[in-house]
C-alpha cells in the first residue's frame, strides 16, 4: 500500500484526530495523533492495514512533553506514529494486548524517560541498575552524566 493510501484511510477513519501527516520520502511517514487515540489507531493499523510489525518505540524529551513514536511497518512502509505525553502526567496505555512484541520497548522507555505504562504485564526495570535512584531518568534533557 502506498503512503498516500495509508494517509487517506487514516483520515477517513479518524478524521480530525489525525493531527498531521508527513511523508518525507517513499517508504517513510510520520503521523501525529492525540494521546487518547493512540491505542485504537494502532489497533486499526494492525487489523485493517496489516501493520502488525512494531520495530520499536522511541521517546524523546521535547520540553513540556515527552514525544513518543511507535515505529510500525508493513509492505515496505515504516509508519512512525507520534504522540505527545505531558511531563506532569507521563502516563501511556500499554499496547502489549494488541502487539505483544511491545513488552520490552515499553519497559525501556519507562526506565529511560520516566513514562508510566498503564496496565503493563511486567513493569519491572529493564536496563537501569537496581540501585539507580527512583525518579531519575537519564534520557531526559535535565539529566546530564556529570551529575552521576
Amino acid at each position: 500500500m502506498l503512503e498516500s493510501e495509508i494517509e487517506s484511510n487514516l483520515r477517513e477513519a479518524f478524521k480530525e484526530n489525525i493531527l498531521e501527516v508527513k511523508i518525507p520520502r517513499q517508504h517513510r511517514m510520520f503521523v501525529h495523533v492525540p494521546l487518547n487515540r493512540v491505542k485504537e489507531i494502532i489497533k486499526y493499523l494492525k487489523e485493517t492495514l496489516s501493520m502488525a510489525h512494531l520495530t520499536t518505540i522511541s521517546a524523546s524529551d521535547v520540553g513540556e512533553d515527552i514525544e513518543v513514536l511507535y515505529h510500525l511497518f508493513n509492505d515496505g512502509v515504516t509508519l512512525s506514529l507520534r504522540t505527545l505525553v505531558p511531563k506532569d502526567n507521563p502516563v501511556i496505555d500499554t499496547i502489549t494486548d494488541i502487539t505483544p512484541g511491545a513488552i520490552l520497548y515499553e519497559r525501556e522507555i519507562q526506565d529511560l524517560l520516566g513514562l508510566k505504562v498503564k496496565d503493563h504485564p511486567d513493569p519491572r526495570r529493564l536496563v537501569l541498575p537496581e540501585d539507580w535512584e527512583e525518579g531519575v531518568f537519564p534520557l531526559r534533557k535535565d539529566w546530564s552524566p556529570k551529575e552521576a
Partner: peptide
Amino acid sequence: KVRAPTLANLP
C-alpha cells in the same frame, strides 16, 4: 535512538 535486533528477538 538505536534498536538493535537482539532486543526484538528476546520475546
